[in-house]
């Protein structure tokens, strides 16, 4: 296949990704609204039997170590909090994309989900350092979804990781996304953007996904959010939780300083906070405090 044919195939593959349920779509939409309560979340979740079952399973898992079993979805949602509920919903809705082995990135199954979860946690913390207000819950959701496109493009990037690595060392590409564009005609960020449009995700999400490596191209009003995701992605990679072959192979856009105020000490504190929160949350998703390979 030449590049044009590959691009057509990728775009077709994006169209073939199953749609998310209306409950998940509504949940994502709600997390982007500045004023909403836990009761609204419960109202969405309780009409989706699969999601309800999964949330009860998580809240009653060993990681939470409750004395008494939790049977009510209201109680479960209030115990877990909104971010966890959105995380569980996304892992249910798009598990196939998140959890599969990504040969195109030399990444084991689960690596992308770990990276997304860590980025989401980092995004919520970094949102607190934005110069103008950035909704932390929205930042979390954007962090969770920012690399959605990798689940699709990976299938078309098999056998490329080493070649891209060598080309990067020879400075043939400014970053990994540029290498993806050279091979496929589009990168994982654009693929994720197209998918988010197909899924009808609420307005800020598609832009955050599309421009997380090129935040300067986002609409001015969304730049504080998009730069938050840009930095969160980098923080996750610095902490060793990249996806695979592309870890640390992206440029830092230092224009973030206009939108996010972070001193060296504050960044160190952010990294520490992310690590602590991640080890708690990872316990919920993987059953115990994380000690499994983050990416081998």
């Amino acid at each position: 296949m030449n590049r044009q044919e590959k691009e057509i195939a990728v775009r077709q593959a994006i169209k073939n990704v199953p749609l998310i349920s209306s409950a998940v779509a509504r949940l994502l939409e709600l997390s982007g609204e500045s004023e909403h309560g836990i009761a609204e979340i419960v109202n969405i979740v309780k009409y989706d039997a699969v999601l309800t079952a999964q949330i009860l399973k998580v809240v009653n898992s060993a990681a939470f170590a409750r004395k008494a079993e939790v049977y009510s979805i209201d109680h479960a949602v209030s115990l877990l909090g909104e971010d966890m509920v959105v995380g569980i919903a996304m892992s249910e809705a798009a598990g196939l994309l998140f959890d599969k082995k990504l040969e195109g990135y030399a990444a084991e199954a689960g690596s992308l989900w770990r990276h997304d979860l860590k980025t989401a946690i980092a995004a919520k913390i970094i949102a607190g350092h934005a110069r103008t207000e950035v909704n932390g819950d929205l930042a979390f959701t954007c962090g969770l979804l920012h690399d959605l496109g990798k689940g699709v493009v990976s299938d078309f990037l098999k056998k490329t990781p080493q070649k891209i690595q060598q080309a990067m060392e020879q400075k043939k590409f400014p970053d990994y996304a540029a290498a993806e564009r050279a091979i496929l005609g589009l990168d994982h960020a654009e693929a994720g953007y197209e998918l988010s449009l197909n899924w009808n995700l609420p307005a800020p999400l598609p832009q955050a996904i599309r421009f997380h490596h090129q935040p300067a191209l986002a609409d001015e009003a969304l730049k504080p959010l998009v730069y938050t995701i840009h930095l969160a992605d980098i923080v996750a990679m610095m902490s060793g939780v990249g996806t695979g072959s592309d870890a640390l192979q992206y440029l830092l856009d230092t224009a973030y300083e206009s939108y996010i105020a972070l001193s060296s000490d504050e960044l160190a504190a952010v990294m520490l906070g992310v690590e602590q929160e991640y080890s708690k949350v990872a316990g919920v998703f993987w059953g115990k405090e994380e000690e499994a390979p983050e990416c081998a």
Binding site: D175, M238, L248, Q249, L252, D253, S264, L267
Partner: peptide, 16 residues
């Protein structure tokens, strides 16, 4: 001690 590409002083944690 890996670094981010095009890093600035703040994100230079690997080197520090």
């Amino acid at each position: 001690g890996a670094n981010v590409m095009d890093t600035n002083n703040t994100f230079n944690i690997g080197k520090r």
